[in-house]
Design a binder for these strands. Structure first.
Lengths: 341, 341
DNA sequence: ATGAAAGCGCTAACAT
DNA sequence: ATGTTAGCGCTTTCAT
């Protein structure tokens, strides 16, 4: 690999001069500059990042911590963040952390070793040392969708959004609304709280039998949850799944059981992932503005790196939106037709 | 940030000793070792990666080059690769490259700056310099699903698989089979070739009017392609889409036009992404063994890094499999019922 | 405007 | 078994 000394030697100048050229500093003779530039071009020289980051004490990379089992929404979000960060000239290092926090310590060590310029959390780190380290080293951090102590967070109002989703169902006339949820994230508990609130506000009581826990956040897991729910009761006309992926599995489970969606049962999801629009029926859901969230997270980190001390503009709460598609409808007047004749 | 000298000073020893402990070398007094270990524990010391990689001339990171517009299949693949590489102790640096190769040069520079230990290509780099650089620097490289000159590649036999997919349709009795495709990748052209071959083998002639190009590989783009196809002709009973995502959009387009799938038109995809099983109807498709492919790519890179000179075992061709689900069926006997009465 | 020299944190000869 | 030293590639004073 060609290095700065090689260039200097070929140009008959010192490494300092080459460095100045590379970094666009002033005080260098235009002729020499162009000669060096040509040499760089010819040799394909690129400064070694490790050396650079060692002396500069900046790594030009920002870390993203994500759950090891990340769902589609998170995947989309990561992709957006990466693209933006890339634009700002950062590299992205991905750190996987177990959902249960068991790998937090190890993850922290990896983070420490990198001397990151900034970090974005898509995963809640339970380990207090993480926040402590970040604070002590003054490493800019933002969380996105997850809350992590004092670290600023970009997110929708999950509780309110979930309430909106369930309220939509109630508004349609549903009274018996099932819930499919999974745990492990603060947003997940907020969403289930939103469900209960909506019920309460409407004077409906939550029936424990209609609450179906899912082990993970995968579609398959949602399918299992729906099956379990169905094996227990069929006395509901709507389902709120706290993520689209869960809803995706739930719809499958419902249909497999011969239940029409939304004919017999309406389904609402949360996230609005790409696939939701291609399900059948198209999924009614809460849209999280992924592009905005990702852009904001990336921008904020960049801003804090280049101009430290800046605060997150506003509270970091981005607007959600109920997207009504085809998976929700009014409940059918009477299920048992014995009244009609 | 605490460094090796700090530890050495606190322990009253030299940095070398600390280094030996950290790297698990022999020849260090057990007592001193444990004292140092305790210090490391207390201070939370972690060796600086930049410094380490500078002297070792290894970065402990492998790069993954992916298309800037990566599809769901690629996303799943990346995720598998990352997990495996992580297991081997590598960090993963993601490089985005434009589909058209316009960013290849810039991308190469970034790669150069990193002194990567290895690189995995999920994107075809058109720029010859990339392969040259990799060869010159003896940086292990594997491609996955894409072919890139002499770089070994892990992939299914795309042409044959596509042929199998279309042959399945033909076997069902279909004679008028449409194609939805997009370009930019060698696998994409192989798949379309497979389509033509299957037709030819069956003595069917390919009708240009039934070939629908899609701009991108997104579901939305597939939807558009289906709409365009439909606006031109309805004279087909089956569709082969060269990716599941395209198929996903195509099914949507078909259904929106009041066409039943598979009642009126059968659809086959390619990839078998997660969502395929949750579509309606469940998508019949060619399964690429993502877990195996990812594992193999990661393993190969690790092997080449640790024991250079090793060759890719076999040709790197992994088996595909036709997964028959619900989106394909025999064509209905006669569309126009004027014959039946 | 340019070069010499120091130093970033670490490892690996080389001494001892 | 342990310490001393040099050096990885770069940037940055500090001289000149």
């Amino acid at each position: 690999m060609v290095n700065i000394k090689d260039i200097a030697k070929k140009a008959g100048m010192s490494p300092s001069t080459v460095s100045r050229v590379v970094n666009g500093k002033k005080y260098v003779n235009p002729e020499k500059r162009s000669r060096i530039l040509k040499l760089i071009e010819e040799t394909g020289y690129v400064p070694n990042k490790a050396a650079r980051s060692m002396v500069l004490k900046r790594s030009f990379t920002v870390g993203i911590v994500i759950p090891d089992l990340f769902n589609m929404f998170q995947r989309q979000l990561i992709s957006v963040i990466e693209r933006h960060l890339e634009t700002f000239g950062y590299h992205i290092l991905i750190f996987f952390a177990a959902l249960d926090g068991s790998g937090d310590g190890e993850c922290l060590n990896k983070i420490k070793a990198e001397s990151l310029d900034g970090i974005i959390l898509l995963q809640e780190m339970k380990l207090p040392q993480v926040a402590e380290y970040l604070a002590a080293e003054k490493i800019p951090a933002v969380a996105c969708t997850v809350s992590s102590g004092v670290i600023p967070c970009i997110h929708v109002d999950d509780e309110r959004a979930a309430r909106d989703a369930v309220a939509h169902l109630i508004g349609l006339g549903h009274k018996k609304i099932a819930l499919i949820y999974a745990g492990g994230f603060s947003w997940a508990v907020k969403r289930t709280q939103g469900y209960f609130q909506a019920l309460e506000e409407a004077g409906l009581r939550a029936d424990r039998g209609r609450i179906a826990p899912s082990e993970l956040f995968s579609a398959e897991s949602g399918l299992r949850a729906a099956e379990a729910l169905l094996s227990r009761t069929r006395d509901f006309t709507a389902v709120f799944a706290i993520t689209d992926e869960l809803a995706m599995g739930a719809i499958r489970g419902l249909r497999d059981a011969g239940i029409r969606v939304p004919g017999d049962v309406s389904v609402v999801g949360f996230d609005d992932i790409e696939a939701s629009e291609y399900l059948c029926p198209r999924l009614t859901t809460i849209k999280q503005p992924i592009p905005e969230m990702g852009a904001e997270a990336a921008f904020f980190i960049h801003h804090r790196i280049t101009r430290p001390g800046t605060d997150l503009p506003g509270k970091g709460v981005v607007p959600h939106r109920l997207v009504v598609r085809e998976s929700t409808a009014r409940p059918e007047p009477k299920k048992k037709q014995k009244n009609s004749p």
